[in-house]
């Protein structure tokens, strides 16, 4: 039930701030239906809400994922940079 509450509150916020959406009431039902039928995505939303409650976990996750991509990139960059001095010794 947590996820539906969260989803609905999000929707309510969006309708109050975006006139685009409030103009189409038929769309509102489309949106509600899609969120209620897609159980996989709403389940993950519930989990994510729990995860996002702890800033320390968020920070750790951010550090880890940035390391995940920057370490290999740094390796490639190093392999590249060591070739450059030869350009100026010619």
């Amino acid at each position: 039930m947590t996820e539906s509450t969260w989803t609905e509150s999000t929707w309510t916020e969006s309708t109050s701030t975006e006139s685009t959406w409030t103009e189409s009431t038929s769309t509102e039902s489309t949106w509600t239906e899609s969120t209620s039928t897609e159980s996989t995505s709403t389940e993950s939303t519930s989990t994510e809400s729990t995860e996002s409650a702890t800033p320390a976990v968020n920070l750790l996750r951010a550090v880890l994922v940035w390391l995940w991509v920057t370490v290999p990139f740094g390796y490639g960059l190093y392999q590249l940079v060591v070739k450059i001095p030869a350009l100026f010794s010619n």
Partner: peptide, 21 residues
């Protein structure tokens, strides 16, 4: 969908892990 408080700076490394590959 991202929950409230989700850092948008987690999205570029997600994209990078695809593009670097």
């Amino acid at each position: 969908m991202a929950p409230p408080g989700w850092s948008r700076w987690l999205v570029p490394p997600a994209a990078l892990s695809i593009h670097l590959a």
